[in-house]
Amino acid sequence: MAPTTPQEPGLSAVPSYEEQQSQSRFDALIGDDSRIEPRDWMPEPYRKTLTRQISQHAHSEIIGMQPEANWITRAPSLKRKSILMAKVQDEAGHGLYLYSAAETLGTERDELNDQLLTGRAKYSSIFNYTARNWADMGAIGWLVDGAAIANQVPLCRASYGPYGRAMVRVCKEESFHQRQGFEILLSLSRGTEKQKQMAQDAINRFYEPSLMMFGPPDDQSPNSAQSMAWKIKRFSNDELRQRFVGMIAEQVKVLGLTLPDENLHFDEEKKQWIHKDLNWDEFMNVIKGNGPANAQRLERRREAHREGAWVREAATAYAAKQEQSEVA
């Protein structure tokens, strides 16, 4: 008898009895708000969606190191420098936790890495904006990490076990990221008139892009419904954006600064925040690769990977040598 190759579920026209059984077990686990673990059967689209989402999330953490790493050497004090280094180091860790989680779905690390280096993979478009001055470290921590946290907290309950557990770890570590950014802005806002202006200018530039981090409005986000049915996503893009804008609208008052959104207000009747229209054409354009720093970010990532090649080779050679002498 010829060896049977496992058939990819979903490809055959008629699901087998086993497939139907597996599908109903999967549906029951999701229905019970339980978790799916790596060795459980899962529908192929679920696996694909998660692999894409988790790896894109990992790439975002890795690329996201760049705008801030760029300011480490120019931090205004040793304390700020240590803090910024710790934060960037955390983002590297987040990337690694997430790559590990993605790998449990069956795609190897090298393949995921390749997808990023060859430009086949996407990452959060916010990191294609440049960080021009020190105040941007404040705005990034407060607004960009703030939006990331608002997005990530519900992901701790994602239906896929390894993703949820990675997010729990990430969220614990994120808590200081937003605060250190806020405190940078607070110091500037209490400084000279020029420093205050710097802080305001940074907020002006990062406000809209941070609101767009939650993704397109619900009526233009075709895959959201499926993600919510699978309990990967727990809240819609607009719900999360609402929650976030409500929080920063209050927080900005403590800074004595303003959000660049004159008509931002809470509509008591609709029970929702009304914010300015976001420029989704720009968002799509940046995703397509035409943002201020897309090319630079990817090139820097490739360069870092190239520069690390000798380290990887040396480590591999050393490991092989060790193994040989152990055998001998």
Binding site: S100, E103, R109, A315, Y318
Partner: peptide
């Protein structure tokens, strides 16, 4: 259990 990682040998 905390997670996983890639490394060439046990020491690394």
């Amino acid at each position: 259990h905390a997670g996983s990682l890639h490394a060439p040998d046990k020491e690394m």
